[in-house]
């Protein structure tokens, strides 16, 4: 201990204190402050960049989710559209089928009616012709029969006979 006290040099102590405190103050101004500030700033920058990247990643995720949702919706819409279209098609087809049936029935009906009418007409015509022919024939026959007097009298007689009877 004595040796230590003996060795102690006031001059060295004085200069060391002055130089060291001066060094601390100088370095604080010219080195430590700018260095630590720069390091802090850089660390903040890195942190911000990381946060931004994280945000971007999240946004990206959201976007993908959105896309997927939209895709799903679109797909569902397409499905419903397709379904509707199919239904419509079916209904149109069935409607058309009914209509066609109806139309066909009508046509057939009309055809039948026409045929009937034609037939009736034909029949009437035939009857008329047969009647005319018969009259003609009858005329001719009558003419011939009534060409002589005898036969005429005879017929009148016969007819009279018949009338009397009835």
């Amino acid at each position: 201990m004595d040796k230590l006290i003996e060795q102690f040099s006031l001059g060295l102590f004085f200069w060391q204190t002055v130089l060291f405190v001066g060094l601390v103050i100088l370095l604080k101004k010219f080195a430590w402050k700018p260095i630590l500030d720069a390091v802090n700033e850089r660390e903040e920058g890195i942190k911000n960049a990381l946060d931004e990247a994280e945000n971007a990643r999240k946004e990206m995720q959201n976007l993908t989710a959105d896309n997927e949702r939209i895709l799903k919706e679109a797909r569902a819409e397409r499905d419903t559209l397709l379904k509707e279209a199919r239904e419509m098609k079916e209904s149109i087809i069935s409607e058309a089928k009914g209509e066609a049936q109806l139309q066909a029935n009508k046509v057939i009906e009309q055809a039948k009616a026409t045929i009937e009418a034609e037939k009736q007409a034909a029949i009437t015509d035939l009857k008329n012709q047969v009647a005319e022919l018969s009259i003609e024939i009858a005329e001719k026959v009558v003419k011939r029969e009534l060409s002589d007097k005898d036969k005429q009298e005879k017929l009148v007689e016969e007819m009279l006979k018949e009338v009397t009877i009835s």
């Binding site: 040099s9 060295l12 102590f13 060391q16 204190t17 060291f20």
Partner: peptide, 11 residues
């Protein structure tokens, strides 16, 4: 030197 370390310790 004890003077140097004393100065540092005193700070």
């Amino acid at each position: 030197n004890i003077a140097v370390t004393l100065s540092l310790a005193l700070v």
